[in-house]
Structure formats: structure tokens, C-alpha cells
């Protein structure tokens, strides 16, 4: 694996008034890695992710995303990342094709690029017949896969997935993870938050946030050994039990 670091954070902190949502987190993510970002509700995952995506300014600390500074080079970061939220964020009253054209256009891609890329996604997802169908009439599992395809449509270096598998059945989740593996194999770095501990096992490395701090960061295998646990679920419970904060 190529050893380029695509995300580097150093004491990255976000305070809202007297409340420290993210408390001096330090980690690095390598190119092509699938990085699991775990934590209970209110642990600060979303805030940390928002800072890395340029949606929120850090209070202090440093962070580089795709080689750009989150303070100064916000716009360049946006050009190089993809984002998929738990709501799947497709336009339901647009067709599959129109959604892809829209995102291609927003990222300033050429018509030729959009055309060719659309074709290859339709083939890959095997939904050529549904190209001109409104997104709202697709089943949830398809929407989710399509949302991921759209998030990496502009070929970003990093894709941020915010609880991407909410409400989807296990079979569709399995297929979805296959898509993530395929994307990672082409060199895309995947930064994913999840609630499902079985999914944590699929990640190359996992960090677990508790009360705004990163309590653990390692491969799933290593984490299970360190905490002497049978599964990621046990690791998570052992760590999350320390939490003082509850809820969102």
C-alpha cells in the first residue's frame, strides 16, 4: 500500500462555548485505507467529520486533508473530497442519470467525462434499465449504492461516509461494503462512521471516540487483542462504558 498520508490531524479541537465537542484529536489516515470512525452518539464524530469536510471551522489544532489546510484551503479540500450522509442525499425527483449529471456539473466536470462516467456506473451497478427512472421509485438498497457512486463520481481522493448503512438490510449492507472495497482498491481513501460493529471489522483501521477524545486506534484484530475481547462489539462496550456524556 502506498504510504501517502491523506488526512493528518494534530490536536484538532472544536469548542462550542464552554463545551468541548472534539478534544485535541490526533490521527493519520493513509491513502487507499478504509478508516472506521466509531463512537457513541454525542462522542464528537460528526463534529470532527464536519471540520475535515470544511463545513465547520476548528477552534484550534491543525488538520490537513488531501494535502490542504482546513483553515486556509477550504475550497481546494472540497474539490478533492466526496461526501455521503446517512440520508443518502440524492434528489428524489430527479432520475438516476440526472442526479449523476448534476453532481458531475457541480464538480465542474466536462460533458464527456460525465457521459463516460455515467455509463460505467450504470454498468457497474447493473442499473442501465433504470437510468431514466426517478430515484424515489428505487428500493432503499439501490439508492444507497447509487448515493455512494454519486459521492465518488468526481473521483475524489477521500470519501467521507456518515453512517451510510442506516436502515438497510444485511444483504444490501454486504453488497455496499463490496462497493467500498472496490473503491478503496482504486486508491480512494474511505473515511466511514458507523454504528454497526460488524462493519467495524471490515475496516483496515478503526478509531473509537469517547467524550471528544480518541480512546483507541488500531486494526480491528489488534484492538481485540489489546482489550482482550472476542469481537469489536466487546471492544466498543468496554471503551464506551467510560463515557461521561450521553446522547446527542
Amino acid at each position: 500500500m502506498n504510504q501517502t498520508k491523506v488526512i493528518i490531524t494534530d490536536k484538532l479541537t472544536k469548542r462550542f462555548g464552554g463545551f468541548t465537542a472534539v478534544d485535541a484529536i490526533c490521527f493519520e489516515v493513509t491513502k487507499g485505507e478504509i478508516f472506521g470512525f466509531l463512537g457513541a452518539n454525542g462522542a464528537g464524530k460528526t463534529t470532527a467529520m464536519r471540520m475535515l469536510c470544511g463545513l465547520s471551522f476548528p477552534t484550534s489544532g491543525k488538520a490537513m486533508v488531501a494535502g490542504f489546510d482546513v483553515y486556509k484551503e477550504n475550497e481546494k479540500i472540497k474539490q478533492n473530497i466526496g461526501y455521503m450522509s446517512q440520508k443518502f442525499s440524492l434528489y428524489e425527483d430527479l432520475t438516476v442519470k440526472e442526479n449523476m449529471q448534476l453532481y458531475g456539473g457541480i464538480y465542474g466536470k466536462s460533458n464527456a467525462f460525465i457521459k463516460q462516467k455515467t455509463e460505467s456506473i450504470l454498468t457497474e451497478l447493473d442499473i442501465k434499465k433504470e437510468a431514466n427512472v426517478l430515484v424515489k421509485s428505487l428500493p432503499l438498497g439501490w439508492k444507497q449504492k447509487l448515493a455512494f457512486a454519486v459521492a465518488i463520481f468526481h473521483e475524489p481522493e477521500i470519501v467521507f461516509l456518515d453512517e451510510p448503512t442506516g436502515g438497510v438490510d444485511p444483504v444490501a449492507r454486504r453488497e455496499f461494503w463490496n462497493m467500498i472495497y472496490n473503491a478503496a482498491a482504486t486508491g480512494v481513501t474511505v473515511f466511514v462512521t458507523t454504528h454497526y460493529m460488524d462493519e467495524a471489522e471490515y475496516c483496515n483501521r478503526v478509531s473509537i471516540m469517547v467524550d471528544g477524545k480518541i480512546e483507541a486506534l488500531d486494526t480491528p484484530h489488534q484492538l481485540k487483542q489489546t482489550y482482550n475481547a472476542g469481537s469489536m462489539d466487546d471492544v466498543f462496550l468496554k471503551l464506551a462504558r467510560k463515557a461521561v456524556r450521553t446522547g446527542d
Partner: peptide, 13 residues
């Protein structure tokens, strides 16, 4: 409400 605004804000637009 749909969450698409967030995606727009993450985009370079």
C-alpha cells in the same frame, strides 16, 4: 430537510 443542502455545502459550489 432532505439533507441535500449539506451535500451541496460540502461540494465546491
Amino acid at each position: 430537510e432532505m439533507g441535500t443542502m449539506e451535500v451541496m455545502l460540502v461540494s465546491p459550489m
